[in-house]
Amino acid sequence: MEGGVSYARMPRVKIRDLKDDYAKFELRDTDASIANALRRVMIAEVPTIAIDLVEIETNSSVLNDEFIAHRLGLIPLTSQRAMSMRFSRDCDACDGDGQCEYCSVEFHLLVKCMTDQTLDVTSKDLISSDHTVTPVDFVDSSLAEPSDTSTNRGIIIVKLRRGQELKLRAIARKGIGKDHAKWSPAATVTFMYEPEIHINEDLMESLTLEEKKEWVESSPTHVFDIDPVTQQVSVVEPEAYTYDDEVLKKAEAMGKPGLVEINAKQDSFIFTVESTGAIKASQLVLNAIEILKTKLDAVRLSEDTVEADDQFGELGAHLRGG
Protein backbone atom coordinates (compact mmCIF):
# COMPACT_ATOMS: atom_id res chain seq x y z
CA MET A 1 0.00 0.00 0.00
CA GLU A 2 1.35 3.34 -0.96
CA GLY A 3 2.03 6.06 1.46
CA GLY A 4 2.04 3.89 4.57
CA VAL A 5 -1.47 3.79 5.90
CA SER A 6 -1.72 5.26 9.33
CA TYR A 7 -3.84 3.48 11.89
CA ALA A 8 -5.37 6.74 12.85
CA ARG A 9 -8.08 6.98 10.28
CA MET A 10 -11.64 8.07 10.34
CA PRO A 11 -13.74 5.49 8.65
CA ARG A 12 -16.73 6.75 6.72
CA VAL A 13 -20.03 5.00 6.21
CA LYS A 14 -22.37 5.69 3.36
CA ILE A 15 -25.72 4.03 3.46
CA ARG A 16 -27.04 2.92 0.14
CA ASP A 17 -30.13 1.01 0.94
CA LEU A 18 -31.98 0.57 4.16
CA LYS A 19 -35.00 -1.53 4.91
CA ASP A 20 -36.20 -3.13 8.11
CA ASP A 21 -34.41 -6.36 7.50
CA TYR A 22 -31.88 -5.31 4.93
CA ALA A 23 -29.08 -2.81 4.77
CA LYS A 24 -26.43 -2.06 2.22
CA PHE A 25 -23.72 0.42 3.00
CA GLU A 26 -20.21 1.38 2.10
CA LEU A 27 -17.48 1.41 4.65
CA ARG A 28 -14.50 3.44 3.58
CA ASP A 29 -11.14 4.45 4.89
CA THR A 30 -10.53 1.45 7.02
CA ASP A 31 -9.07 -1.95 6.48
CA ALA A 32 -10.17 -5.53 6.29
CA SER A 33 -9.62 -6.26 9.94
CA ILE A 34 -12.16 -3.66 11.00
CA ALA A 35 -14.61 -4.66 8.30
CA ASN A 36 -14.32 -8.29 9.25
CA ALA A 37 -14.55 -7.53 12.93
CA LEU A 38 -17.80 -5.74 12.25
CA ARG A 39 -19.07 -8.68 10.26
CA ARG A 40 -18.12 -11.17 12.94
CA VAL A 41 -19.69 -9.12 15.69
CA MET A 42 -22.90 -8.74 13.73
CA ILE A 43 -23.19 -12.48 13.23
CA ALA A 44 -22.01 -13.77 16.54
CA GLU A 45 -22.01 -11.15 19.23
CA VAL A 46 -24.96 -8.85 18.91
CA PRO A 47 -27.37 -10.11 21.54
CA THR A 48 -30.93 -11.12 20.85
CA ILE A 49 -33.60 -12.91 22.77
CA ALA A 50 -34.49 -16.46 21.95
CA ILE A 51 -36.32 -19.26 23.68
CA ASP A 52 -33.84 -21.15 25.74
CA LEU A 53 -35.82 -23.28 28.15
CA VAL A 54 -38.99 -25.17 27.36
CA GLU A 55 -41.14 -26.95 29.88
CA ILE A 56 -43.49 -29.24 28.05
CA GLU A 57 -46.65 -30.13 29.86
CA THR A 58 -48.51 -31.96 27.14
CA ASN A 59 -47.20 -32.99 23.79
CA SER A 60 -49.24 -35.44 21.81
CA SER A 61 -48.07 -34.13 18.47
CA VAL A 62 -46.05 -36.15 16.02
CA LEU A 63 -42.82 -34.35 16.84
CA ASN A 64 -40.92 -35.21 19.96
CA ASP A 65 -40.20 -32.79 22.77
CA GLU A 66 -36.62 -31.97 21.83
CA PHE A 67 -37.61 -31.33 18.26
CA ILE A 68 -40.30 -28.86 19.28
CA ALA A 69 -37.98 -27.20 21.77
CA HIS A 70 -35.37 -26.84 19.07
CA ARG A 71 -37.85 -25.35 16.67
CA LEU A 72 -39.09 -22.91 19.28
CA GLY A 73 -35.54 -21.82 19.94
CA LEU A 74 -35.02 -20.93 16.31
CA ILE A 75 -38.02 -18.61 16.14
CA PRO A 76 -36.73 -15.03 16.01
CA LEU A 77 -38.13 -12.81 18.74
CA THR A 78 -38.19 -9.06 18.60
CA SER A 79 -35.14 -8.10 20.57
CA GLN A 80 -34.92 -4.35 20.76
CA ARG A 81 -34.69 -4.80 24.48
CA ALA A 82 -31.83 -7.23 24.23
CA MET A 83 -29.04 -4.70 24.55
CA SER A 84 -30.37 -3.42 27.84
CA MET A 85 -31.31 -6.83 29.19
CA ARG A 86 -29.09 -8.85 31.44
CA PHE A 87 -27.56 -12.15 30.62
CA SER A 88 -29.20 -14.55 33.00
CA ARG A 89 -25.82 -15.91 33.99
CA ASP A 90 -24.90 -12.57 35.54
CA CYS A 91 -28.28 -11.45 36.69
CA ASP A 92 -28.34 -10.49 40.37
CA ALA A 93 -32.08 -10.39 40.64
CA CYS A 94 -32.62 -14.09 40.26
CA ASP A 95 -29.31 -15.59 41.27
CA GLY A 96 -28.74 -16.75 37.80
CA ASP A 97 -31.61 -19.18 37.52
CA GLY A 98 -32.79 -17.05 34.63
CA GLN A 99 -36.43 -16.67 35.50
CA CYS A 100 -36.73 -13.04 36.52
CA GLU A 101 -38.11 -10.15 34.54
CA TYR A 102 -34.70 -8.58 34.06
CA CYS A 103 -33.20 -11.45 32.22
CA SER A 104 -36.03 -13.51 30.84
CA VAL A 105 -39.34 -13.45 29.08
CA GLU A 106 -41.93 -16.11 29.58
CA PHE A 107 -44.00 -17.59 26.79
CA HIS A 108 -46.97 -19.86 26.89
CA LEU A 109 -48.36 -22.06 24.22
CA LEU A 110 -51.61 -23.97 24.47
CA VAL A 111 -53.08 -25.41 21.35
CA LYS A 112 -55.40 -28.28 20.85
CA CYS A 113 -56.84 -29.40 17.58
CA MET A 114 -60.56 -29.99 17.79
CA THR A 115 -61.45 -30.17 14.13
CA ASP A 116 -60.86 -32.68 11.43
CA GLN A 117 -58.67 -30.27 9.58
CA THR A 118 -54.97 -30.20 10.28
CA LEU A 119 -54.15 -27.38 12.60
CA ASP A 120 -50.93 -25.46 12.16
CA VAL A 121 -49.35 -24.33 15.37
CA THR A 122 -47.37 -21.25 14.51
CA SER A 123 -45.28 -18.66 16.24
CA LYS A 124 -48.45 -16.60 16.47
CA ASP A 125 -49.77 -19.00 19.08
CA LEU A 126 -46.94 -18.13 21.43
CA ILE A 127 -48.24 -15.82 24.11
CA SER A 128 -45.58 -13.57 25.49
CA SER A 129 -45.46 -12.12 28.97
CA ASP A 130 -43.76 -9.04 27.62
CA HIS A 131 -45.30 -7.17 24.77
CA THR A 132 -41.93 -5.93 23.56
CA VAL A 133 -40.67 -9.44 23.04
CA THR A 134 -42.86 -11.28 20.59
CA PRO A 135 -42.25 -13.63 17.72
CA VAL A 136 -41.18 -11.76 14.65
CA ASP A 137 -44.10 -10.88 12.46
CA PHE A 138 -43.38 -11.76 8.93
CA VAL A 139 -45.39 -9.33 6.97
CA ASP A 140 -44.03 -8.78 3.59
CA SER A 141 -44.24 -5.04 3.24
CA SER A 142 -44.33 -5.33 -0.52
CA LEU A 143 -47.73 -6.96 -0.20
CA ALA A 144 -50.09 -4.15 0.66
CA GLU A 145 -52.66 -6.51 2.12
CA PRO A 146 -52.03 -6.75 5.84
CA SER A 147 -55.43 -8.28 6.38
CA ASP A 148 -54.65 -11.20 4.18
CA THR A 149 -54.27 -13.90 6.78
CA SER A 150 -53.19 -16.61 4.42
CA THR A 151 -49.83 -14.96 3.90
CA ASN A 152 -49.45 -13.80 7.45
CA ARG A 153 -49.47 -16.85 9.60
CA GLY A 154 -46.18 -16.88 11.38
CA ILE A 155 -43.68 -19.67 11.51
CA ILE A 156 -45.08 -23.15 11.70
CA ILE A 157 -43.96 -25.03 14.76
CA VAL A 158 -45.88 -28.24 14.37
CA LYS A 159 -49.05 -29.51 12.76
CA LEU A 160 -51.75 -31.11 14.84
CA ARG A 161 -54.56 -33.40 13.87
CA ARG A 162 -57.75 -34.02 15.74
CA GLY A 163 -57.22 -34.66 19.41
CA GLN A 164 -53.58 -33.74 19.52
CA GLU A 165 -52.47 -31.12 21.95
CA LEU A 166 -49.44 -29.05 22.71
CA LYS A 167 -49.07 -27.21 25.97
CA LEU A 168 -45.84 -25.70 27.13
CA ARG A 169 -44.10 -22.89 28.94
CA ALA A 170 -41.00 -21.40 27.44
CA ILE A 171 -38.44 -19.02 28.82
CA ALA A 172 -36.63 -16.75 26.42
CA ARG A 173 -33.29 -15.32 27.41
CA LYS A 174 -30.70 -13.02 26.09
CA GLY A 175 -27.79 -14.60 24.30
CA ILE A 176 -25.33 -14.22 21.50
CA GLY A 177 -24.80 -16.10 18.28
CA LYS A 178 -21.47 -17.43 19.43
CA ASP A 179 -23.24 -19.58 21.98
CA HIS A 180 -25.95 -20.81 19.71
CA ALA A 181 -27.00 -19.92 16.21
CA LYS A 182 -30.51 -19.16 17.42
CA TRP A 183 -29.26 -15.95 19.06
CA SER A 184 -27.68 -14.70 15.89
CA PRO A 185 -29.60 -11.67 14.63
CA ALA A 186 -28.03 -11.84 11.20
CA ALA A 187 -29.26 -13.99 8.38
CA THR A 188 -26.39 -12.88 6.21
CA VAL A 189 -23.64 -10.38 6.74
CA THR A 190 -21.10 -10.08 4.02
CA PHE A 191 -18.80 -7.52 2.58
CA MET A 192 -16.82 -7.26 -0.56
CA TYR A 193 -13.92 -5.13 -1.59
CA GLU A 194 -14.90 -2.39 -3.90
CA PRO A 195 -13.40 -3.11 -7.30
CA GLU A 196 -11.56 -0.58 -9.40
CA ILE A 197 -11.95 -1.39 -13.06
CA HIS A 198 -9.96 0.33 -15.76
CA ILE A 199 -10.55 -0.58 -19.34
CA ASN A 200 -7.65 -0.05 -21.65
CA GLU A 201 -9.58 1.93 -24.24
CA ASP A 202 -6.91 1.70 -26.91
CA LEU A 203 -6.69 -2.02 -26.68
CA MET A 204 -10.43 -2.28 -26.51
CA GLU A 205 -10.83 -0.35 -29.71
CA SER A 206 -8.65 -2.91 -31.45
CA LEU A 207 -11.40 -5.47 -30.92
CA THR A 208 -14.16 -6.03 -33.37
CA LEU A 209 -17.74 -5.74 -32.22
CA GLU A 210 -18.02 -9.52 -32.23
CA GLU A 211 -15.00 -9.84 -30.01
CA LYS A 212 -16.22 -7.14 -27.71
CA LYS A 213 -19.50 -8.88 -27.34
CA GLU A 214 -17.79 -12.13 -26.67
CA TRP A 215 -15.58 -10.52 -24.10
CA VAL A 216 -18.45 -8.79 -22.35
CA GLU A 217 -20.42 -12.01 -22.27
CA SER A 218 -17.54 -13.85 -20.69
CA SER A 219 -18.32 -12.30 -17.35
CA PRO A 220 -21.04 -14.30 -15.65
CA THR A 221 -22.29 -11.18 -13.94
CA HIS A 222 -23.38 -8.04 -15.68
CA VAL A 223 -20.34 -5.81 -15.19
CA PHE A 224 -19.63 -4.49 -18.66
CA ASP A 225 -21.89 -3.45 -21.42
CA ILE A 226 -21.58 -2.23 -24.97
CA ASP A 227 -23.11 1.02 -25.82
CA PRO A 228 -25.47 0.25 -28.68
CA VAL A 229 -24.68 3.56 -30.34
CA THR A 230 -21.00 4.17 -29.89
CA GLN A 231 -20.17 0.48 -29.59
CA GLN A 232 -17.90 1.31 -26.70
CA VAL A 233 -17.42 -1.03 -23.84
CA SER A 234 -18.15 0.56 -20.53
CA VAL A 235 -18.30 -0.54 -16.94
CA VAL A 236 -21.93 -0.45 -15.94
CA GLU A 237 -21.90 -2.13 -12.60
CA PRO A 238 -18.46 -2.58 -11.09
CA GLU A 239 -19.84 -4.10 -7.91
CA ALA A 240 -21.36 -6.97 -9.75
CA TYR A 241 -17.84 -8.15 -10.32
CA THR A 242 -17.11 -11.19 -8.18
CA TYR A 243 -13.36 -11.28 -8.61
CA ASP A 244 -13.74 -14.43 -10.63
CA ASP A 245 -11.09 -13.26 -13.14
CA GLU A 246 -13.24 -14.54 -15.99
CA VAL A 247 -12.76 -11.40 -18.07
CA LEU A 248 -9.04 -11.38 -17.43
CA LYS A 249 -8.76 -14.96 -18.54
CA LYS A 250 -10.88 -14.20 -21.55
CA ALA A 251 -8.70 -11.26 -22.48
CA GLU A 252 -5.66 -13.45 -22.17
CA ALA A 253 -7.25 -16.09 -24.31
CA MET A 254 -8.06 -13.49 -26.93
CA GLY A 255 -4.43 -12.48 -27.00
CA LYS A 256 -5.07 -9.12 -25.38
CA PRO A 257 -3.63 -9.23 -21.91
CA GLY A 258 -4.09 -5.98 -20.11
CA LEU A 259 -7.37 -5.26 -21.80
CA VAL A 260 -8.79 -4.53 -18.46
CA GLU A 261 -7.21 -3.90 -15.12
CA ILE A 262 -9.13 -4.80 -12.02
CA ASN A 263 -7.98 -4.04 -8.52
CA ALA A 264 -9.68 -4.45 -5.23
CA LYS A 265 -9.58 -1.28 -3.17
CA GLN A 266 -8.03 -2.32 0.08
CA ASP A 267 -9.78 0.29 2.15
CA SER A 268 -13.33 0.34 1.04
CA PHE A 269 -15.96 -2.30 1.54
CA ILE A 270 -19.50 -2.79 0.52
CA PHE A 271 -21.52 -4.41 3.25
CA THR A 272 -24.71 -6.32 2.87
CA VAL A 273 -26.62 -7.05 6.05
CA GLU A 274 -29.74 -9.11 6.29
CA SER A 275 -31.45 -9.43 9.60
CA THR A 276 -33.57 -12.29 10.85
CA GLY A 277 -36.08 -9.73 11.99
CA ALA A 278 -35.09 -9.90 15.61
CA ILE A 279 -33.71 -6.40 15.35
CA LYS A 280 -33.73 -3.98 12.48
CA ALA A 281 -30.79 -4.17 10.16
CA SER A 282 -29.79 -0.62 10.98
CA GLN A 283 -29.94 -1.39 14.66
CA LEU A 284 -27.86 -4.46 14.07
CA VAL A 285 -25.07 -2.39 12.61
CA LEU A 286 -25.25 0.18 15.39
CA ASN A 287 -25.34 -2.49 18.07
CA ALA A 288 -22.38 -4.19 16.47
CA ILE A 289 -20.38 -0.97 16.57
CA GLU A 290 -21.42 -0.49 20.16
CA ILE A 291 -20.26 -3.95 21.08
CA LEU A 292 -17.06 -3.53 19.18
CA LYS A 293 -16.45 -0.37 21.15
CA THR A 294 -17.16 -2.09 24.44
CA LYS A 295 -14.75 -4.78 23.51
CA LEU A 296 -12.07 -2.28 22.70
CA ASP A 297 -12.80 -0.52 25.95
CA ALA A 298 -12.36 -3.78 27.74
CA VAL A 299 -8.93 -4.08 26.24
CA ARG A 300 -8.08 -0.48 26.95
CA LEU A 301 -9.12 -0.54 30.55
CA SER A 302 -7.79 -3.89 31.43
CA GLU A 303 -5.07 -4.22 34.03
CA ASP A 304 -2.92 -6.13 31.60
CA THR A 305 -2.92 -3.23 29.21
CA VAL A 306 -1.61 -0.91 31.88
CA GLU A 307 1.20 -3.27 32.53
CA ALA A 308 1.88 -3.57 28.87
CA ASP A 309 2.15 0.16 28.72
CA ASP A 310 5.64 0.04 30.10
CA GLN A 311 6.70 -2.67 27.74
CA PHE A 312 5.27 -1.36 24.56
CA GLY A 313 5.62 2.31 25.10
CA GLU A 314 3.70 4.37 22.64
CA LEU A 315 1.55 1.54 21.36
CA GLY A 316 0.49 0.63 24.84
CA ALA A 317 -0.38 4.22 25.57
CA HIS A 318 -2.35 4.45 22.40
CA LEU A 319 -4.30 1.38 23.29
CA ARG A 320 -5.19 2.99 26.57
CA GLY A 321 -6.44 5.96 24.69
CA GLY A 322 -3.41 8.13 25.04
Binding site: A32, N36, F191, P220, T221, T242, D244, E246
Partner: peptide
Protein backbone atom coordinates in the same frame (compact mmCIF):
# COMPACT_ATOMS: atom_id res chain seq x y z
CA UNK B 1 -26.94 -22.97 -15.98
CA UNK B 2 -24.58 -21.52 -13.43
CA UNK B 3 -23.49 -18.74 -15.71
CA UNK B 4 -27.09 -17.74 -16.30
CA UNK B 5 -27.33 -16.94 -12.63
CA UNK B 6 -24.06 -15.07 -12.49
CA UNK B 7 -21.88 -17.81 -11.13
CA UNK B 8 -18.60 -19.11 -12.32
CA UNK B 9 -18.94 -21.64 -15.07
CA UNK B 10 -17.02 -24.32 -13.19
CA UNK B 11 -18.63 -23.84 -9.83
CA UNK B 12 -15.76 -21.88 -8.36
CA UNK B 13 -16.27 -18.92 -6.12
CA UNK B 14 -14.05 -16.34 -4.55
CA UNK B 15 -14.17 -16.82 -0.81
CA UNK B 16 -12.94 -14.60 1.99
CA UNK B 17 -11.33 -15.86 5.12
CA UNK B 18 -13.75 -15.71 7.98
CA UNK B 19 -10.99 -14.98 10.41
CA UNK B 20 -9.09 -12.22 8.57
CA UNK B 21 -11.61 -10.97 6.08
CA UNK B 22 -9.09 -11.23 3.30
CA UNK B 23 -9.61 -12.92 -0.02
CA UNK B 24 -8.45 -16.53 -0.12
CA UNK B 25 -5.67 -16.89 -2.63
CA UNK B 26 -7.48 -19.27 -4.90
CA UNK B 27 -11.01 -19.76 -6.01
Amino acid sequence: KLREKGFNYHGLEVLYSGVYGTELTCE
